[in-house]
């Protein structure tokens, strides 16, 4: 359910307006969650080629990593599936301190 603030800052509407301005855009979508995940399946984060972003796929825990991957997706054009688990699962990976796991699909717009 959306509250009025979310309606104003709707990632998909923002992605469309960015596209109309000629910016290159990637869309990240939560496609699966396990355990306690901060954002529900279907949530979006949209990113432009300069690294500007709107929306969220977690409570801010993994956005940085998703944005970095999204920049690659924008330049290469191939979609990617990212998976994030708890922070201490693997030393090199960012993670979710809440203990949940999420799968995020990142694709280029156009």
């Amino acid at each position: 359910m959306q509250n009025p603030t979310e309606q104003i800052r709707d990632p998909l509407l923002i992605a469309e307006s960015w596209m109309a301005e000629g910016r290159d855009v990637a869309i990240a979508t939560v496609v699966e969650t396990w355990g306690s995940a901060p954002r529900p399946v279907g949530s979006h984060l949209v990113i432009d080629e300069a690294g500007n972003f709107e929306g969220s796929v977690s409570g801010g825990c993994v956005e940085g990593s998703v944005i970095a991957e999204a920049m690659d997706v924008i330049s290469q054009g191939t979609p990617r599936m990212l998976e994030f688990g708890v922070a201490d699962e693997t030393a090199w990976q960012v993670g979710l301190s809440c203990g949940g796991r999420i799968k995020v699909y990142v694709e280029r717009l156009g």
Binding site: D10, L12, L13, A15, E16, M19, I27, Y105, E107, R108, L109, G110
Partner: peptide
Amino acid sequence: MDPYCLKKLNAERRARRAALLLT
């Protein structure tokens, strides 16, 4: 995502009609 799909999806959402994006 196909830009045309995004436009179509947003148009449905703005019109308060249920729609599904199938990927």
